[in-house]
Design a binder for these strands. Structure first.
Length: 977
DNA sequence: TACAGATCTTA
DNA sequence: GTAAGATCTGTAC
């Protein structure tokens, strides 16, 4: 090698994992051998070899090598036995591909380098050092940060996926230090994936800053006592040796003995036939075509190479690459002494239920088989059940098929309404369809077999997000009972703001370590999406049966935790019984007057158009008032108005608050933009959008989510009927479109001040409790306590401020927030809060207790035992921590209110039935319930509804303040509210 | 086509 | 200052 030469070093092991994860899983050769990663690997390698000159690297290699990890034990394990100890085993279907990938490299006629006792990174470092010494240049094909220490004037990293080259400047940009200091930075930061410890509490940002200030690791450790931040100083002193060890672990070894000298890595013409023979054997048709075209060979004249495709080819090389000791397989374990811990782990691994195997799932196409499965369900007493439909709207979804599982791994799919693969708009499709998809049990026959089991009191049905399935099935005359819902179990256990969610795919990955086939993988997404009824039935079987299988396994994992963690009552009293109630509310829907909405749309659109003219006039040009960016350009740029605050992306904010202030200082354009926004918002979000959700009877069916808030509140979507406008007159007009059918009225019943009442109870504030008991004006009373002003003749501004403080308290008040809300200086807001705490010291005690409880347990509780988890409550960033503390203060209050209205809803239907009333509950808006009531039953219904709501906390909790409910009936929601 | 950000609606 | 969801713009893929 000499000056001008260019060496490419491909980090083969990293390449494999990128190829594996970049490609859709389960790519198999015709004999069933998984080859997805091999395919991705070959494509990437070919692309790199062929197109290096056109990439960001810009030169073609003169020397080339692909380098792999060989074994798990290296000199680093001698330094630190925890090294790479928490690496997970490679995916099952990837393992047989490791040897094939080495075959692939040889087929490309490229050197395939690996060495026992050394990691790929050390080999790469050594070759790079040799090449630099010889005056050559080096491109390392990898984006691994561990390799960044090698970057220098002659060495760059190349990220092929992103086609980006990383030189010293890019490293500096990414990590804040130049490559020479990467080792020190890594030593401080550590690396979770390799189990390099580093120094606790130091991340990349802090490490870069420290190295910038002190120069290098040793100097930093020597002068650690000078550091101001107490925690950081302590850690650097305490963990100095750990940092030194980490440094040794991350430092790459440039003196690896090389079996293949650098000069032998020179590039030569590949043996085209050998390569094509391999690619053909792998059945990579398009790559075979590309390669043969490029090399000017006729692919058909080359015979596929015999490639060993069994496990026999598994060499000693690959499993060590990532497998930690405790996953050593039976075959090798006899050679290695297992520690007791590793042994226990191996035993536990063996006790795990059968791994997921989609090939065992059954497609049921005849009555006898279906009956046999139902017998099995009766025998087992449990049945995980899932449906596939043609719509996500449960009120209009039709069944396409059903799946179920009776035991882990034992699952089946029953196609019921599949049609042939879609060709667009062909009239013959519908008739010819059934022939090409094979036999299906007629829907009514299948239902007659399923129904007795789904309704059998001795068979527990298990679903995931079961409200959807129950609702659809109810439209087929099936009332599923008894049941459990894994989504609700998970929610009762783990409602948390930082945990992702309670969807099946997430739960499966979290609790079963298994990634199910996603809907997207089955049906595609966006324009390419296909109806499930048109997907191949064998694919749908894998997908649908897997969902049932996963649901069953989740239930087995999660259900026992309820009792273990004392959450059975929450699940059985607040979650599960609400599901059928909400299901019926969604099924009923609420009547909406289409004409009212369209008249409002016309009115809003006319007014908005007029405003748009005036805005253009005032601005001197036309622009889009819907674009905050353009507004900022016009107002703060062209017109030179003073900007207020900035958004987090650095743009000038143009929110209503900023514009209101500009309007007050005499800028009519700001006022007009605010008004325009309001009108277009009302039109776009409500009057235009709502009619699209109406069904044939003029009713809208929202969907309630029982598991998407941290506090226990419900949420409503498609459409969201919990944010229908009420504050402005124009907005309120939208509520007049929500009506009752002839002969009926809408009844609205809402809790008055429920959260403040709960606060008065839990924080035990005598003045507040008395005020509520005596039915006083709570905000006026607060103002009077705080400012010493008599309630009689109190200025409205004083009361308004007290009201804002009361709300703020419930939200975990901060001076910043209150000053924002009231548009007063931060100091003044702070003074208010101090005075509030002086007058009501119990409030501060409550807040401190909530925070302390949360710090200790990681969660807070409502009066009914519902938990909201805040695992990051001890976050080191003070403002993040403060935000979590506010949430932890608010959650028990908001959550208790949510629990109370849930209890009311659960009891409501029986109470109405017992009173022989026909009122139907339609909507819930956090502290309000909306009913449809026969006109002549209104008088009788109101007291029943009020009683159920006001007594909803009893007998579990006896509040020391009364709950009050206001109820009113009218022709539309506006007047009833 | 998909996603994040800004804004606005509710309790 | 709490808890949500929808729409539109603008940009990245």
């Amino acid at each position: 090698m000499q000056k001008g030469d260019h060496l490419f070093l491909v980090d083969g092991s990293a390449y494999i994992f990128r190829a594996y994860h970049a490609l859709p899983p389960l790519t198999r050769k015709s004999d069933g051998l998984p080859v997805g990663a091999v395919s991705g690997f070959c494509n990437m390698l070919w692309k790199l070899v062929e197109e290096a000159r056109e990439t960001a690297v810009g030169v073609a290699p003169t020397h080339f090598a692909v380098i792999f990890d060989y074994s798990s034990t290296t000199f680093r394990n001698a330094l630190y036995d925890g090294y790479k100890a928490n690496r997970e085993a490679p995916p099952e279907d990837l393992i047989p591909q490791f040897p094939l990938i080495r075959e692939a490299v040889r087929a490309f006629d490229l050197p395939c380098i690996e060495k026992e006792g050394y990691e790929a990174d050390d080999l790469i470092a050594t070759y790079a050092c040799h090449a630099v010494a010889a005056g050559g240049e080096v491109t390392i094909v990898s984006s691994d940060k561990d390799l960044m220490q090698l970057v220098g004037p002659q060495v760059i990293l190349y990220d092929q996926m992103k086609d980006k080259r990383l030189g010293p400047e890019e490293v500096k940009e990414k990590f804040g230090v130049y490559p020479e200091k990467m080792i020190d930075l890594q030593a401080l930061v550590g690396d979770t994936s390799d189990n390099v410890p580093g120094v606790p509490g130091i991340g990349p940002k802090t490490a870069a800053q420290l190295l910038d200030e002190y120069g290098d690791l040793e100097t930093l450790l020597a002068r650690a006592s000078e550091i101001k931040q107490a925690k950081r100083r302590e850690n650097l002193i305490q963990f100095a040796d750990q940092a030194r060890l980490s440094k040794k672990l991350v430092t790459l070894d440039c003196s690896t003995p090389l079996d293949t000298p650098l000069d032998e890595l020179f590039v030569h013409e590949p043996d085209g036939e050998k390569l094509i023979a391999f690619l053909k054997a792998m059945e990579f048709t398009s790559l075979t075509r590309r390669v043969s075209t490029k090399l000017g060979l006729e692919a058909s004249s080359v015979e596929a190479a015999p490639v060993a495709t069994t496990g026999a080819l598994r060499g000693p090389d690959f499993d060590g690459a990532t497998k930690p000791a405790q996953f050593v397989t039976a075959a090798t374990s006899s050679l290695l002494p297992l520690s007791p811990v590793a042994h226990a782990a191996a035993v536990l691994e063996g006790a795990k239920p059968a791994p997921f195997d989609r090939s065992t799932y059954v497609t049921i196409r005849d009555v006898e088989t279906l009956e046999a499965w139902m017998d099995e369900a009766r025998e087992a007493g449990i049945l995980a059940f899932d449906i596939e439909t043609n719509s996500l709207f449960a009120n209009m979804a039709d069944l396409v098929g059903v799946s179920f599982a009776t035991a882990p791994g034992r699952a089946a799919y029953v196609p019921l309404a599949h049609a042939s693969a879609a060709t667009t708009g062909d009239l013959w499709d519908e008739k010819g369809a059934d022939d090409s998809v094979g036999p299906q049990i007629p829907l009514d026959v299948a239902l007659s077999i399923l129904k007795p089991v789904l309704e059998d009191p001795a068979v527990l049905k298990i679903g995931q997000n079961f409200k959807f399935d129950c609702l659809v099935m109810s439209r087929y005359g099936v009332t599923i009972a008894p049941f459990d819902d894994t989504m609700l179990i998970s929610y009762a256990l783990d409602a948390s703001s930082s945990l992702e969610g309670h969807g099946m795919d997430e739960l499966s990955e979290r609790f079963l370590g298994h990634k199910p086939i996603s809907y997207k993988e089955l049906c595609g997404s966006g324009k390419g999406q296909v109806a499930i009824a048109h997907c191949a039935i064998d694919k749908v079987t894998e997908y649908a049966a897997e969902d049932a299988d996963v649901t069953l396994r989740l239930w087995k994992t999660l259900k026992p935790r309820l009792a273990g963690e004392g959450l059975t009552a929450v699940y059985e009293r607040l979650e599960r019984p609400l599901l059928p109630v909400l299901m019926r509310m969604e099924a009923r829907g609420i009547r909406v007057d289409r004409d009212i909405l369209s008249r409002l749309s016309a009115r809003f659109s006319q007014k908005a158009a007029a405003l748009e003219e005036e805005i253009a006039e005032l601005a001197g040009e036309r622009f889009n008032p819907g674009s905050p960016k353009q507004i900022a350009e016009i107002l703060f740029g062209k017109l030179g108005l003073p900007g207020g605050k900035k958004t987090k992306t650095g743009q000038w904010s143009t929110d209503a608050k900023v514009l209101e202030e500009l309007a007050l200082s005499g800028n009519p354009i700001a006022r007009h933009i605010v008004d325009w926004r309001q009108l277009t918002k009302l039109k776009g979000t409500y009057t235009d959008a709502l009619p699209a959700y109406m069904d044939g009877e003029g009713r809208i069916h929202t969907s309630y989510s029982m598991a998407s808030t941290t506090t226990g509140r419900l949420s409503s979507s498609e459409p969201n009927l919990q944010n229908i406008p009420v504050r402005t007159e124009e907005g309120r007009a939208i509520r007049t479109a929500f009506i009752a059918p002839p002969g009926k009225k809408l009844l609205s019943a809402d809790y008055s001040q429920i959260e403040l009442r709960i606060l008065a109870h839990v924080a035990d504030i005598p003045q507040l409790k008395t005020a509520f008991q005596e039915g006083l004006d709570i905000h006026a009373m607060t103002a009077s306590e705080m400012f010493g002003v008599p309630v009689e003749g109190m200025p409205s501004e004083i009361r308004r401020r007290a009201k804002a403080i009361n709300f703020g308290i419930v939200y975990g008040i901060s001076a910043f927030g209150l000053s924002n809300q009231l548009s007063i200086p931060r100091e003044e807001a702070g003074a208010y809060i101090r005075r509030y705490f002086e007058r009501f010291p119990g409030i501060r005690d409550y807040m401190d207790e909530a925070k302390a409880f949360c710090r200790e347990h990681g969660y807070v509780e409502t009066l009914f035992g519902r938990r909201a988890h805040y695992p990051d409550i001890r976050h080191s960033n003070a403002s993040v921590r403060a935000a979590l503390e506010r949430a932890a203060i608010n959650a028990p209050i908001q959550g208790t209110a949510a629990d109370i209205i849930r209890r009311a809803m659960i009891r409501m239907e029986d109470a109405l039935a017992e009173a022989r009333l026909s009122a139907r509950m339609l909507l819930q808006v956090h502290d309000e319930l909306i009913f449809e009531v026969e006109e002549d039953e209104i008088e009788a219904t109101i007291p029943v509804v009020k009683r159920v709501m006001e007594e909803a906390a009893l007998p579990a909790v006896e509040l020391s303040v009364p709950l009050e409910v206001e109820a009113r009936a009218a022709d539309n929601w506006d007047e009833a509210h």
